[in-house]
């Protein structure tokens, strides 16, 4: 596909734009200041991931919210490339907590697309089983005792399961689809 054809496919259609989307987003804790973004691009210039990714651009994410491109941004898998280093938050001249905005979008994307990267489902399942995000093998516990480390504190996995239930996360987790790598 030529570059020109690709650009044609990416044209924004008016009917795609949800003018209320930015208001929805700015009501959520962490994303209150999204409308203040004036596209200076500091977040992207200073983002270590953007340096090595051809796609991940925090500035573009902010603009897509302002334009109301709800479906596009919530199904954009590049959202999962933020490392949460928070450099963008520290450098934004408008105090837009851009990494928190990305977190807000990720949370919404899980609900909107009913999907998440596989790794999070695995971590969540481990958490429900053990209270940790990893299953710590019995051999580790034995080794701790051998080298004189105190036993690990008790966890209450049944309470984690309960926590997942009351936050509505358990229901979501049950039917959520997963995807592997984001390239």
């Amino acid at each position: 596909m030529s570059e020109t054809q690709e650009q044609v496919l990416n044209i924004i259609k008016a009917e795609e734009m949800d003018p209320k989307f930015k208001y929805e987003i700015s009501k959520i804790h962490g994303a209150e200041k999204i409308m203040l973004c004036y596209q200076c691009g500091t977040c992207t210039a200073d983002c270590p991931v953007s340096r090595f990714s051809n796609f991940y651009r925090p500035r573009k994410i902010a603009r897509m919210i302002q334009l109301g491109l709800k479906d596009r941004i919530l199904s954009d898998k590049d959202l999962w490339l933020c490392t949460t280093c928070y450099t963008c938050i520290d450098h934004c001249p408008q105090n837009v907590d851009i990494a928190h905005v990305v977190r807000v979008l990720r949370n919404l994307s899980v609900k909107h697309t009913n999907s998440m990267p596989l790794v999070f489902k695995e971590l969540a399942n481990n958490l429900m089983k053990t209270g940790f995000v990893y299953v710590i093998p019995e051999s580790r516990h034995t080794r701790r005792a051998q080298i004189g480390l105190p036993p690990l504190p008790k966890t209450k996995p049944q309470e984690i399961a309960k926590l997942f239930e009351i936050t509505g996360f358990a229901k979501l987790l049950e039917n959520v689809e997963t995807f592997g790598r984001v390239e």
Binding site: R103, F120, L123, L127, G131, P153, T155, F164, T167, L172
Partner: peptide, 17 residues
């Protein structure tokens, strides 16, 4: 005496969790 995961790994998928 008892604890669980700090919560960080779940923030991307569910802030309340």
């Amino acid at each position: 005496p008892e604890y669980n995961c700090c919560g960080f790994p779940m923030d991307p998928v569910n802030h309340d969790v």
